[in-house]
């Protein structure tokens, strides 16, 4: 939480005595928004339903929401790393497409099908390393770098797919990923959860994690304190690419296909989830926990609006409004915390 504006001892002193509710609000972040939104959709679907039951708050639909959220959550987790360093990655959708196309081609009978899964992931990682190298070593603004790779990799994905869709319904090595269950929960959800846990572990429990926060918070101080800023930056873009590769595998497996058009606009949902989760675009502040909540808010909204039968055009409008309102609420909450 940014409290730099009120850099006085009394303000610091005050934090200790903040009300229990205030502290809970600070810890929970956007969770209350998620709960309210869920309850709201429950009420609306109940109100508009013909038979007096809600087909929103059912176990089956909850699982649906989680499945729909999974891919965005994987991308958003990677994006969290990047945004924590005050960077941005616009190329995740294109990286996903490149990885998806390459992976699916590897799965074809005349290629090496059992190498398909590594191909998805390594393709994503390679794309991420390109971004990371340009940001970290050539010191180019990340927005510009990834705007470039967003366009170039999109083209590359179309070229690799030869302008068509790579289809393959016989993918034993990773069919489970998009269509299988484990303990009654889809593998998509397990993988997304695992990505979130791994990200949380790196950010909270390792030296590298602290270095990521430090580089985002104050790059000059980070360097003077002996942190290898270039290595940290390379890492965040690389892991973001790797996660995009995983997301590529998830979507290809689910649809038994890949083409150059995969993942268009996904970067915006990923960024929205991160920002909704309270991670500062200025770097240094934020958490994976927040990103999980952010991704769930977007997922619940998409699902709820669809069940209510709202047209996809209105869904776009609603999504945009909610994102801005939620961030406004978060800003107000932080100012409230800082002032008190």
């Amino acid at each position: 939480m940014s409290t730099t504006g009120s850099a006085t001892a009394p303000a610091a002193e005050q934090k200790k005595h903040g009300s229990v509710a205030g502290r809970a609000f600070e810890r929970l972040g956007m969770l209350p928004v998620l709960i309210v939104m869920y309850a709201l959709f429950y009420g609306l679907t109940l109100y508009f339903s013909a038979d007096g039951t809600s087909n929103f708050a059912t176990a089956a639909n909850n699982m649906n929401i989680l499945r729909q959220v999974a891919i965005n959550l994987v991308l958003a987790a990677g994006m969290t790393f990047v945004i924590l360093t005050a960077g941005i990655d616009l190329s995740v959708g294109s990286m996903l497409a490149v990885a998806a196309v390459l992976g699916m081609q590897m799965s074809l009978p005349d290629a090496v099908p059992w190498l398909a899964l590594p191909a998805f992931i390594l393709a994503g990682l390679a794309c991420g390393l390109i971004n990371g190298t340009m940001v970290a070593y050539f010191n180019i603004n990340p927005f510009v770098v990834t705007l470039g790779t967003m366009t170039a990799l999109r083209g590359a994905a179309y070229l690799l797919a030869n302008g068509t869709t790579v289809l393959n319904s016989d993918i034993p090595s990773f069919d489970w990923l998009g269509n299988g269950d484990f303990l009654g929960i889809p593998w998509l959800v397990w993988v997304a959860a695992a990505v979130a846990v791994v990200s949380w572990f790196i950010l909270r429990k390792t030296i590298l994690g602290l270095h990521i926060y430090a580089v985002g918070g104050n790059p000059q101080a980070a360097r003077l304190t002996g942190i290898k800023v270039t290595t940290v930056l390379l890492f965040v873009y690389a892991i973001n690419g790797l996660f995009a590769g995983i997301a590529g595998a998830m979507s290809s497996s689910r649809l038994y296909a890949a083409n150059g058009n995969w993942g268009v606009g996904y970067e915006l949902d990923a960024i929205a989830a991160v920002v909704l989760g309270g991670t500062s675009l200025n770097g240094g502040v934020g958490s994976i926990w927040g990103t999980v909540i952010g991704a769930l808010i977007i997922g619940v909204m998409n699902n709820g609006l669809t069940i209510l039968g709202l047209s996809s055009f209105w869904q776009y409008v609603a999504k945009g409004v909610v994102i801005v309102l939620a961030v406004l609420l978060d800003k107000w909450r932080q100012q409230h915390n800082a002032a008190n």
């Binding site: 940014s2 429990k205 030296i207 602290l210 430090a214 101080a221 502040v285």
Partner: peptide
């Protein structure tokens, strides 16, 4: 501007130069 990480905790700021000796295999000993 060059020393502190203002958004981060006293712990992070104090320990930033001695993380290695308070961790094993890169995992922090909180």
């Amino acid at each position: 501007g060059q020393g502190l990480f203002l958004q981060l905790s006293a712990l992070t700021n104090t320990a930033m130069n001695t993380l290695k000796s308070n961790s094993s295999m890169g995992v922090l000993n909180h």
